[in-house]
Design a protein around this nucleic acid. Sequence first.
DNA 1: GTTGACCTTACCCTGATGGCAAGCTTTAGC
DNA 2: GCTAAAGCTTGCCATCAGGGTAAGGTCAAC
Lengths: 136, 136
Amino acid sequence: MSKMMTTLVTIGQAAKQTGLSAKMIRHYEEAGLLKKANRTDAGYRLYNSQQLQQLSFIKQARTLGFSIAQVSSLLDLWRNPQRSSKEVKQLAEQHLDEIKQKVAELQQMQKVLQQLADSCCGDDQPQCAILDGLQK
Amino acid sequence: MSKMMTTLVTIGQAAKQTGLSAKMIRHYEEAGLLKKANRTDAGYRLYNSQQLQQLSFIKQARTLGFSIAQVSSLLDLWRNPQRSSKEVKQLAEQHLDEIKQKVAELQQMQKVLQQLADSCCGDDQPQCAILDGLQK
DNA sequence: GTTGACCTTACCCTGATGGCAAGCTTTAGC
DNA sequence: GCTAAAGCTTGCCATCAGGGTAAGGTCAAC
């Protein structure tokens, strides 16, 4: 056993360093993404550099739009030396498909809405192509 | 006063005709989008053709992604003969901007995620560019 | 020793539904 | 007329990923 020099930080520091909020970190612990953090005698959570790395990983994955459940799976794969990159890629492509579908839905909305807006003169008269379009 | 022949339907029929669910219709009533529906002696909600038209309007607006609050404003404008199409157009363009921003965010996610997925060979080995990318 | 910054838990709020339960009403079949 | 099914009612809980607030304990600086 080697005695590592570990720098421990409280949740506020961890939040600053990872770009998360303290609330989110507690939430992730509660959700089971992280092992329960060690505490000081006073009950303050303490994080070492490995845990900070895990939190950064979560932050990155959330930024890419992965759900908490997906992040949980990603974390499991990340921590598992027996993983295959195939599993990871499958997860990523599944999420990619979800994103593409959302983009398509939003673009469809955008298209229709843009057409309606373009056909509305936007003056002081009550006649309005947008409302007419919604009525159809 | 002319006595109009009005066809009245219960909430299930209204749901079928508008593509909404009965639950949504009750929710919209609760949220103040619609006047409280008349009831039969037994307490069943009844909808006439004008109310069905309003429900269809709501359905269309929701399909275009307007929030309930925005639909409420749209309904107010729709019902107000003194409206100006300018007000409607402004609301629509505001929503259009929100959609465009969401699309941009999702496309940014998509781009990064696609790059990660492309650089992951997806084989049986543990080495994985996606996990490496998330770790950074 | 006090003040202010930081931490703790617990609870309610968001948006737009879905689901379920318990109970009443109406309709259809026999 | 009786019964079963379908339809309606309200009310409460769950979702998802947190934010807000309250009430209280802790720590560091001055």
